[in-house]
Write a protein that binds this DNA or RNA. Sequence first.
DNA 1: TATGAAAGTTTTAAATA
DNA 2: TATTTAAAACTTTCATA
Lengths: 153, 153
Amino acid sequence: MALRIDDMDRKILGELQRDAAQSLDEIAKRVGSSKTPVWNRIRKLREAGVIKQQTVLLDAEALGFEACFFVLIRTSEHEADWQQKFLTALRERPEVQEAHRLAGDIDYILKVQVQNARAYDQFYQALISEVKVHNVTALLSMEEIKSTAMLPL
Amino acid sequence: MALRIDDMDRKILGELQRDAAQSLDEIAKRVGSSKTPVWNRIRKLREAGVIKQQTVLLDAEALGFEACFFVLIRTSEHEADWQQKFLTALRERPEVQEAHRLAGDIDYILKVQVQNARAYDQFYQALISEVKVHNVTALLSMEEIKSTAMLPL
DNA sequence: TATGAAAGTTTTAAATA
DNA sequence: TATTTAAAACTTTCATA
């Protein structure tokens, strides 16, 4: 995993982030290099895990996922055992798009994408029946202003 | 944009989400169809905007983006003019990976990915100098438990 | 790093159910 | 109307200079 990443790598990653469907030739032209070196760098970046996945981003609303909640969680439990159970529950639930353990007052934040408010309630009920949490606040998104996975390389 | 999406479309989108680098032949085999119909469906889904982008997901930490903050924003300003300025500021800043307008007490939530705490402070100072906000709470992520863009189709 | 050739893939078009 | 077949154009992959 310890891979020195130089400017050329960064340019290539930038192109792949922008459009992973473009051909090697096109990427090479844009970054000012040629096919073989670009291909070798991409292979190395893939093997090192810097490129984690090649995927498509879908329009959640068009597919019926019309509700997005951010969930702030406080817990009184801080035992390893409880935490393990909680993490596993989050990783297994496909509605959970993001889950972070936080510093400070609030212990966890989740981003949950569901069909509608009822589906959120079902998720919520299932979660609190699996693991004990002290306090849960759900923030409902009214409008996605921006959503991107692009890193500013 | 009004496109009826059937079960076969959903299967194809599921495969593309999972691995957008696999060949048409492979996708066709997995969903129980053949190349041309799969290709035509993908083209339609792309044109309709259901497939928004083809991209690669990168390891943020390996690229030096070691700090992730969730930012809760309250504002007293609710005029169209102020809001327009605020949205533009968020869309232009590449550190902002997500921005949502919320229902209720808290007005906005952001996900901000930066190199370190100092870079976050610079972002924060720049933002509040551009637009007036009433109250800002930053939640620092200690651990990314899960991060995915996969919809459970 | 560059070239080029073999293997494989995408894309279009025509033919078929 | 949707699917299969087929063939041209293009891309990836890899050996060699």
